[in-house]
Amino acid sequence: MARFSDANLAIANEIISRYPRPKSALIPLLHLAQEQDGWVTDDAMRHIAELTGTTPAEVKGTGSFYEMFKFHPVGKYMVNVCTNLSCQLLGGEELLEHAEATLGVKAGGTTADGMFTIEDVECIAACTEAPCLQVNYRYKLRVSNDDFDQLIDDLRHGRTGIPEHGTLATVRQSIPAEAGAGIVPPEEAREAPVWLARNEVEATDGGGDA
């Protein structure tokens, strides 16, 4: 139920600085909130609204459009089984049934111990390696029932190195102040970029030849 920690607040401000308008940072900030707490809390959305000059309703309005944001606690591991056509043709639905039977919850549900949430998801772009799934958005390809059981065992015993739900990339972009070209609102960038003047020089030169 938390606002951003001091460390995450610094990250949030850095993210905001990479956009010409703060509101553009809204989705990355919702991800940061989910990374911090495992799901998106009301307090986090209030904090995001303050940081981006929006209202909590706008933050939730945007966030609720997107499948990946969870507004209630979910499992430590999201197990997303693809059942779209390419996977369906090669056993995606059967894999999902096996997952549901093994973990004892239906798609959309979370196990009582809070370890796993299963989802029946749309195409995750690994179609030639069907059937496939993602655990916290890390791929597992050509998954057999045995592979699945092994995966669950590995996850239970912390043998996978997959971070807890909410963490996407483990590396963040960072633009050093002296290296950046300068990100400003559109109102402050009305001049033609200087290097386009090369075209004019060329046109002048070319004009002499014509």
Binding site: R18, Y19, S24, I27, P28, L30, H31, G63, F65, Y66, E67, M68, F69, L168, A169, Q173, I175, E178, A179, G180, A181, G182, I183, P193, V194, W195
Partner: peptide
């Protein structure tokens, strides 16, 4: 970033990402 390869050309690239839609 700024003055790419020592030229006047400068531009920032911002990595951004969606959330499932």
């Amino acid at each position: 970033g700024k003055n790419i390869l020592g030229t006047e050309f400068s531009v920032d690239i911002t990595l951004t990402w969606g959330a499932g839609a």
